[in-house]
């Protein structure tokens, strides 16, 4: 069974005096298998939060449908097995961390002893033990994020949906969240999270979906998506006879760069690479490295955003 399945899921908001339609999400077809860590990427305003809100029943779709853990949207039995962290979570600030988690524990139906045990364990894991007795209005942004993660895991969920879990955290905190995601995966849970921070996503995700302007433009392993479009290939060589340089010129996209003994040659694609390597071997030059330069996620976003804005 798939943890998340959406079929042509869409949301239009009506805004302003004339109730003008604004499309926030359009025809989303997404499948996330159980046990997978799925990164949902996209620039600001792409519709990531809208998607998560639709999945969690905070918004109602204007078209299409979706199922979580095989059940329709908003189903209470499905929510029993789902943990959710909203973007920049906000909690009752008159409560202490412990009171809040205890209250949420009641909402997910845990009895008193189980609540106490889970709250202690999660506070330890997320390093908020020392803040448990503190009123939430005194929490820092990072502490709030940790508290938000703790409440999302309170019901021992099979599926965890996190909206920008790493925002507001310092590098150390980010790393901790990354480790947490990996641990959730090793425990067999499905994780769906949105982010625009690429290195965080690369390490933990099995697959990613890339959302631009309310449309899913790609879905699959990140490597495949980005490698599918190689921007250039760098070849590091030495002992290149100067007389063949002239013949190589038409293959290169930039002027050769010399680094001490070595020469950095950049070609556009595999065809040019084959020819270059053949020439170098023929001339008995030494090849040290061949490095494909894949497109960065930023470049990918830009390539998809720009035509739409024209």
């Amino acid at each position: 069974m798939n943890a998340i399945e959406t079929e042509k899921l869409g949301k239009e908001h009506r805004t302003g005096f004339w109730r003008k339609r604004v499309c926030a999400l359009s025809q989303l077809d997404l499948t996330v298998a159980e046990g997978e860590v799925f990164g949902y990427l996209g620039p600001n305003g792409a519709g990531k939060t809208t998607t998560l809100k639709l999945l969690m029943g905070l918004l109602r779709p204007t078209s299409g449908d979706a199922r979580l853990l095989g059940r329709p949207l908003g189903d209470v039995r499905a929510k029993q097995q789902i943990g959710f962290l909203p973007e920049q979570p906000s909690f009752y600030d008159y409560l202490t961390g412990r009171e809040l988690l205890d209250f949420f524990g009641q909402l997910v139906g845990l009895d008193r002893s189980l609540r106490r045990e889970r709250v202690e364990r999660l506070a330890r894991q997320l390093r908020i033990e020392s803040a448990l007795e503190l009123q939430i209005r005194k929490y820092s942004k990072g502490m709030l994020q940790r508290l938000g993660l703790a409440q999302a895991l309170l019901n021992d969920p099979r599926l965890v949906l996190l909206d920008e879990p790493m925002s507001g955290l310092d590098p150390l905190g980010r790393r901790e969240v990354r480790d947490l995601l990996l641990r959730l995966k090793s425990e067999g849970r499905t994780v769906f999270f949105s982010s625009h921070i690429i290195p965080d996503v690369e390490v933990v995700c099995d697959r990613v979906g890339i959302l631009v302007g309310g449309r899913l433009v790609a879905q699959g392993p990140l490597d495949e998506i980005l490698l599918a479009r190689i921007a250039s290939i760098e070849v590091t060589a030495s002992q290149v006879p100067p007389e063949i340089m002239g013949e190589l010129d038409h293959l290169l996209v930039t002027r050769p760069v010399s680094r001490g003994e070595q020469l950095l040659l950049t070609v556009r694609d595999e065809g040019a690479l084959a020819e270059l390597v053949a020439r170098l071997v023929e001339a008995k030059a030494a090849i040290h490295a061949i490095l494909p330069h894949r497109e960065s996620l930023e470049e990918y976003f830009l390539r998809h955003v720009e035509p739409r804005e024209v």
Partner: peptide, 14 residues
């Protein structure tokens, strides 16, 4: 307004 609702009604409640 304070978005405290988001973590409540996404819990298994009606």
């Amino acid at each position: 307004e304070r978005r405290t609702l988001y973590t409540i009604i996404t819990k298994p409640i009606h």
